[in-house]
């Protein structure tokens, strides 16, 4: 399956899940600041990985991978699915 690409600033401003609408400051793969350092490798890896960190608050999410998809839950910002 194709992974959902990392959340863009645009998507975060109009999120489908609940929670405050802010620009995501964090890389959802490595959990580091999205605007600091190079996350090209993270983006490439995300093709074959679900997100691990909430892009909005940097919390580690509870991630369940199943054969045909995944879900990732942040206690504060709700669920993402792919």
């Amino acid at each position: 399956m194709t992974a959902e690409p990392p959340m863009t600033a645009e998507q975060a401003v109009t999120p489908t899940n609940t929670g405050p609408t802010v620009t995501p400051p964090w890389c959802d793969r490595c959990g580091e600041a999205a605007d600091a350092g190079d996350h090209a490798a993270c983006w490439a890896a995300r093709e074959l990985e679900p997100p691990r960190f909430c892009a909005r608050c940097r919390r580690r999410m509870k991630v369940q991978v199943v054969p045909a998809g995944w879900s990732a839950v942040c206690v504060e910002h709700g669920e993402r699915r792919g």
Partner: peptide, 13 residues
């Protein structure tokens, strides 16, 4: 193994 793995994703089935 088709579909996803345990913690990572696979090629589409």
């Amino acid at each position: 193994i088709v579909g996803n793995y345990l913690t990572t994703l696979g090629r589409s089935a």
